[in-house]
Design a protein around this nucleic acid. Structure first.
Length: 642
RNA sequence: GCCGUUGUAGCUCAGUGGUAGAGCACUUCCUUGGUAAGGAAGAGGUCAAGGGUUCAAUUCCCUUUAACGGCUCCA
């Protein structure tokens, strides 16, 4: 007998060699039907795999992330089985579970798959699942595995095998499909009741663009049709929050073929938001001791040679224009310009830290396939600043920047984010990173300490640093689930020396300042794109392009509406009047759809009593209020940035 | 940049080898209506651009361009 410990601490005895499924069955048949995989001593196992010794056991059902992953991984195998049966000769690479589903990469040998084909594949998978074929695990020697795939002529699996140790190799077979796979899998295909194949895409083999491109099919599956339907509904809802859709509906921004890809045009409503954000940034930065500067959109090639950007980033810059034999580049970053402002005057340690801020306009030649709404554009406005400080001041300055992020996140209600400490890869010194191995380690440790001391949770990611130093990126997620870098905070130990930036120290010698590059609000483009999705277009009053819309019951009350409008305008409240010849219901509906936070309905009663009938977007009628009262409330709400 | 899909009115979308339609929006008129769509009429399109096949192309083919789904990249 062996002792099995359950998550609640209970210990029960079972015959050696009992499987997790046996154990589940001993608890209840219902559980045995529901359970998908088992966690044995912390490792996810097939349910059918015999347990041979005392272990802790957790039976995993659908709600457990490990079970979901196992379920989706098994579905990937099911899909591969369907593909193999419909497209003979296809070679498979890997088919892992991902955040919301699974994919399988395959070499279709020149065959293409269309959307219609996906429906056919789904049907085939549904047929195959009904066979209730078990996922059979088989340990196999490396020699036998090599022979199997050599015979099959499958160079992809042979490539995978090369990196595997003999003795740790397993095959899984369900029905007629056998795959090299470490598992684990759910017990049988019949558990996969609902499958949706979402899209087909190209993916480079091993993620390297120099390699052949494989066909990747993404899908998602569930233990019941109901859950699939719910998931699909959720995806539809997410689409409604897509900033590209909302941006068009609300008149925030637009793109035009004649202007060019990735070059956003900000419409009046979007410009209001930009100006509110800039106001916030200027207030915040002024209070934190920043000074504003303004610099040109272009600069000579020589400056980017000095900065060191050109060799690293030339491909991502717009090609230069040549004037009198001199090349000029559109600026892709503001830092060199700011460095020139630093070096324009002799600096003393008494001036440091010197903080130069600018909503600088940058142009980046992003690859055409990378453009994505406002999130990835070719013309962008960075909430940029550069802080020049001594080594002693660094920790405090860096931390102050992080605190500024958190302050902003609070204002915007941003709760889901991850701070990533991006480090260099020693193997790429001199290529991707400036070749200063000791400075790298020293600075990385400096930043790490600041983060630890400020108690902000973070993850470390190798090989993600800027070329001139380590950085902290703040990752956020769009409504469609795409991940973006919002804010960035970078240390730069390289450019100061390259630009010969100096200051006179207390003992009358000279030193080079450390530089912090920071952009807490990222860019107008990305931040407003994010806010659109974050608020689902329902901006808080202080950011709303139109804060109040006055809705006269009929044009008899237009004079009263106009006098109200005048009052609000004088107070700097963004107000307009729906003066169309429409009924009040129609005006309300349209104003609701435009997500204007406040509606003032005015008719005979209100005009006579000097009141307005207040209606809050999404909340309905709030009843009549005195004009002075509602105006005071509005002012407060806006001033507090609510 | 690569793989795949798509491009018809301001927006959302039908449709066709014989030069186009709906709803919303827009204009005008009727209506002056009390909390999520009042009625009528009208105007609006080189069917993304260029080339080819054809008696005839918005429709079929090719190229370009843009957007979308991914991959790669992301200062």
């Amino acid at each position: 007998m062996m002792k099995i410990t359950f998550p609640d601490g209970a210990i029960r005895e079972y015959a050696e060699g009992s499987s997790s499924l046996d154990i589940a069955r001993s608890i209840s048949e219902g559980l045995a039907r529901k359970v998908l995989a088992a966690s044995v001593d912390g490792q996810v196992w097939d349910l059918s795999r015999p347990i041979l010794q005392d272990s802790s056991l957790k039976l995993l059902t659908w709600d457990d992330p490990d079970a979901k992953n196992t379920f989706w991984h098994s579905t990937a195998h099911l899909m591969a089985e369907a593909v193999e049966s419909m497209y003979p000769g296809v070679k498979f690479w890997v088919g892992p579970p991902v955040d919301n589903g699974f994919y399988y990469d395959m070499d279709m040998g020149g065959q293409t798959i269309t959307e219609d084909d996906l429906r056919k594949l789904e049907n085939r998978m549904s047929e195959l699942s009904k066979t209730n074929n078990a996922f059979l695990r088989k340990e196999i020697t490396k020699a036998d595995a090599l022979q199997y795939f050599t015979q099959k002529g499958d160079e992809y699996k042979l490539d995978l095998l090369q990196n595997l140790q003999d003795g740790a190799i397993t095959f899984y077979t369900q029905g007629g499909f056998t795959d090299l796979c470490r598992g684990p899998h759910i017990p049988h295909t019949g558990l996969i009741k609902a499958v949706k194949l979402l899209n087909v895409a190209g993916a480079y083999w091993k993620g390297d663009e120099k390699n052949k491109q494989l066909t990747r099919i993404y899908g998602v599956s569930f233990p019941s049709q109901k859950e699939l339907d719910e998931h699909l509904t959720m995806l539809e809802e997410a689409k409604k929050r897509d900033h590209r859709k909302l941006g068009k509906e609300l008149g925030i921004f637009t793109f035009d073929d004649d202007v060019g890809p990735g070059l956003a045009l900000w419409m009046p409503n979007g410009t209001v938001i930009i100006e509110e954000l800039e106001k916030l940034a200027k207030e915040t930065e002024t209070a934190a001791g920043y000074k504003r500067v303004v610099t040109p959109h272009i600069a000579k090639e020589s400056m980017y040679l000095t900065s060191g950007h050109l060799p690293y980033y030339q491909d991502s810059m717009f090609p230069p224009m040549e004037l009198d034999g001199v090349k000029y580049y559109l600026k892709a970053m503001n830092c060199p310009h700011h460095h020139k402002i630093y070096s324009a005057e002799a600096r003393s340690y008494r001036e440091l830290p010197l903080r130069l801020a600018e909503y600088g306009t940058c142009y980046r030649y992003e690859q055409s396939g990378e453009l994505f709404g406002l999130m990835r554009v070719r013309c962008l406005h960075m909430n940029d600043a550069h802080i020049y400080c001594t080594k002693e001041q660094f920790a405090q300055e860096f931390r102050a920047v992080n605190d500024m992020y958190l302050k902003y996140f609070k204002i915007f209600g941003i709760e889901k984010y991850v701070m990533r400490l991006s480090l260099h890869d020693p193997a790429k010194l001199g290529q991707k990173y400036i070749n200063e191995p000791e400075l790298w380690l020293e600075t990385e440790q400096l930043v790490r300490e600041v983060l630890i001391n400020s108690g902000v949770p973070f993850v470390e990611v190798p090989d993600e640093g800027a070329f001139y130093g380590p950085k902290i990126d703040v990752q956020i997620w769009s409504a469609i689930g795409r991940e973006f870098t919002l804010a960035t905070n970078q240390v730069d130990f390289a450019q100061g020396r390259r630009f010969k930036l100096e200051y006179t120290t207390r003992d009358n010698s000279t030193d080079t300042p450390l530089i912090i590059h920071r952009a807490p609000l990222g860019t107008h483009e990305r931040f407003i794109g994010f806010l659109l999705e974050h608020y689902a277009g329902k901006f808080p009053t202080w950011l709303s392009p139109v804060q109040v819309r006055i809705l006269p019951i009929s044009d008899k009350f237009m004079d009263y509406a106009r006098s109200l409008e005048g009052k609000l305008l004088k107070l700097g409240i963004r107000v307009d009047i729906d003066d169309r010849n429409e009924k009040i219901g129609k005006k309300i509906r349209d104003t609701e759809l435009m997500k204007v936070p406040y509606m003032f309905v005015v008719g005979e009663k209100e005009a006579n009593e000097g009141k307005v009938a207040v209606r809050r977007q999404g909340k309905g009628d709030l009843g009549a209020q005195d004009v002075s009262e509602i105006i005071a409330n509005l002012k407060t709400e806006i001033e507090h940035r609510q």
